[in-house]
Amino acid sequence: MKQLTESPRFKITLLLISMTLFCLSLSVFRYYISETKVFFFLNWNLFLAWIPLALSSFLVAFTIRSKISLSLIIVVWILFFPNSPYILTDLFHLKVRSTIPIWYDLIVILSYAWTGLVCGFISLNDIEKRLSEYCQGTVVNGIVISFLFMSSFGVYLGRFLRWNSWDILNNPFGLFNDIVVRFIYPLEYTKTWGVTILMGVLLNFMYFTFKLVKNNNERIVQPENINNL
C-alpha cells in the first residue's frame, strides 16, 4: 500500500483528481453566484478528456500481449484523444458578462483547459511508452507527431463542424464525407488546414516541452545523481 501511494503514477492521478475537483468547484460557485449554467458544459468536456487517460492507464496497468487488442485500444484512444486539447478552444466562449467578471471566467476556462491538456499529454506519454516496446525511437516520435496533428484535425472537426467522438458510430458516413472532401479538395478548405497545421505545431511544441521537463526531472531524482550531489 505504501509503495502504491508513493508511486509517481498515484501522485499524478491524485493531482489530476484534485485539479478536476477544483474545476468543478469553480463552475458550481459560478452557478451559485450567477444562477446560470453557462460553463457547465466544461464538466462534460473534461469528462471526455479523462477517457484517453483511462484507456492508456489500462494499458499501463495490464500487460496486453496481443498486438491486435493493443491496436484496437489505441484506435479507440485516438478517437477520444482530441477531447483533451479541445478545451483550449473553449476560450472562444470568453466574453464580458454582467453577472460574473471576465477574469473569473478566464480562470474557469483555463483551469479546465489545463487539466484536460495534462490528462491528454500523460495518456500520450503512456501510449508512446507502449509503442516503444515494438518500434524504434525515431519511428515512435514520428507516430507521436502524427497523433498530435490528427488530434488538431479532430479539434477542428469538433469546434467548427460540431462533430464529436461518438459520431463515428452515430453518423459515420456524414463524418467520413466531411473528412474525405477536405483531403480531395484541400485548397477549398484553407481554414481546415490552417487550424490543423498551426494547432498541430503548437501541440507538438507543448507536448515535447512537457516530455523534456518530465524526463529532466526523472534524471535529477535518480539515486546515482543524488549521490553525486
Rank of each mutant, 00 (worst) to 15 (best):
L91C: 09
L16W: 07
N43L: 11
G200P: 06
R97W: 06
S123N: 04
V180K: 09
Y86L: 06
Q3A: 09
V75C: 05
S57M: 11
G158M: 04
L148F: 14
N83D: 11
I145E: 09
H93K: 00
P82W: 10
N125C: 02
W114Y: 14
I73L: 14
S66N: 14
V213E: 01
I184K: 02
I143N: 10
V38P: 02
L91M: 14
N125D: 05
V201C: 09
F62T: 07
T89P: 05
F41I: 14
N83Y: 11
K211W: 00
L26A: 08
E188A: 10
F92A: 05
E6M: 11
S69I: 15
L42A: 10
S34Y: 13
D167Y: 12
G116S: 15
F205R: 04
T13L: 06
L148N: 11
P52D: 06
L55M: 15
P101H: 02
L161Y: 02
L106N: 06
R182H: 15
R9V: 10
F10L: 01
V28I: 14
I73R: 12
C135Y: 08
I197M: 02
T209D: 13
N228S: 04
G194V: 05
V195T: 01
I122G: 05
P101R: 00
L187V: 15
D167C: 11
F173A: 13
L124M: 10
M150S: 15
F22P: 11
L91T: 10
S27W: 01
T63M: 12
L169W: 13
I145A: 15
L70E: 15
F173P: 03
M19G: 06
C23A: 08
P101T: 03
V144K: 11
L88C: 07
T13V: 01
A54S: 09
A61D: 10
N141Y: 00
L117Y: 03
S165V: 01
E188Y: 09
F208N: 06
N204F: 09
P101I: 03
I145Y: 05
W103D: 13
V96Q: 11
I64N: 09
I220G: 00
L110R: 08
F40L: 08
L59G: 07
L203K: 00
Y32D: 07
G120C: 15
N177S: 14
L15T: 06
I87T: 04
L202C: 12
G116N: 15
L131T: 11
E188M: 10
Y31I: 07
S69Y: 13
S71L: 14
I87D: 06
I143K: 12
F39R: 01
V76E: 00
L175S: 04
F41K: 07
L169A: 08
Y104P: 10
C23I: 04
L15N: 01
Q222L: 04
D178R: 06
R182W: 14
L42M: 12
V181P: 06
Q222M: 02
L148R: 11
S98G: 02
N228E: 03
K129L: 00
T209K: 12
G137K: 15
V140P: 12
K129E: 01
I226F: 07
V195C: 00
N177W: 05
W114E: 08
N216M: 01
Y134T: 10
L212F: 02
S151N: 13
N215G: 03
L53K: 04
L117F: 04
V60K: 15
W44A: 08
K191W: 09
G120D: 13
I179H: 02
F92Y: 02
